[in-house]
Write a protein that binds this DNA or RNA. Structure first.
Lengths: 157, 157
DNA sequence: TTTGGTGCAAAATTTTTGCAGGCTA
DNA sequence: TAGCCTGCAAAAATTTTGCACCAAA
């Protein structure tokens, strides 16, 4: 049982929510797959290995809960399903420390990109508009090295 | 018949595609609602006013086509449906000139925000990684002025 | 014991697809 | 006329919901 799991239990109790196996297991799967972008179905399949009686609806309800507790981020990679990724808050770091996503239009693979430049843009928005920024999501679409090379090789033929 | 419609016809013909009423009407609706974020269903309802025999499947197929021709942008406001917005290319301006979206977490309203700061970040990514950036989508989540005021008024009670 | 949580199945939503017929070029 | 395009309906895919039962506090 990891420290994160203890922290999660504490958060649940503080919110008057119940600690259940299903909730612990969903969080555990997300933690073990940190940095991946998992659909509800992905999580469901992995939890089922240790806990076959879990239902898909519970996974949906649990990720919704984790989202509200701000323990996971929701990402949409435009492939028709919503994806979830564990956040950094649970590790004790203060403040959100998001990364951006680079999505290859050819093969669909996704890379992460760390950057702080948006803090600047967020404070600019706060100054210029009446909008209070809490969070952001930034995706770059383009082409990865492999696909660029493959396509230029195909052209040369 | 607007100039844009003529330009669109030309593009279709250049691509060996057929000019149909349905395609012209979908584009026209998107143009008349420039700056809005329309679902396929929204477009369908509006086209039906002038052309009741159109089918929803045709709208889906047409926005997909417009996307491939880079005449519209796809946006996902995390409300469960994909939205489309006419781009700026069709007006003759060269290069993409995207705007970002400010999404209020309380009321769901969406504002646009013009900015060029991301060009810088894009070229930084090109330098630092093997990824060739073609496009981006940036969303800010937060709270609009009205919702912030309403919530602080509710607290004071 | 009480209340919230879960599993299951059905429903709801959004989007895609197959096919026969229609329209553009 | 030939083949792309369309409308319709069915299918697919994802997510939500109702309800009876179960388990945590």
């Amino acid at each position: 049982m990891t420290l994160n799991q203890e922290a999660f239990k504490k958060i649940l109790k503080e919110q008057g929510l119940k600690v259940t196996n299903q909730r612990l297991l969903v969080l555990e799967v997300l933690e073990k797959h940190r940095g991946e972008h998992m659909t509800a179905e992905d999580i469901y399949e992995l939890v089922k290995v240790d806990y076959p009686e879990i239902g898909l609806a519970t996974v949906y309800r649990t990720v919704q809960l984790l989202l509200e507790l701000q323990l996971v981020d929701r990402i949409n990679l435009d492939d028709g399903c919503v994806r979830y990724e564990i956040g950094t808050l649970i590790e004790g770091e203060e403040g959100k420390h998001h990364h951006h996503h680079l999505i290859c239009k050819s093969c669909g693979k996704v890379w992460s990109f760390e950057d702080d430049l948006l803090e600047e843009l967020e404070s600019y928005i706060e100054r210029k508009t009446d909008f209070h920024v809490l969070d952001h999501e930034l995706k770059f679409y383009g082409q990865c090295k492999e696909c660029a090379e493959r396509e230029s090789a195909e052209k040369r033929k």
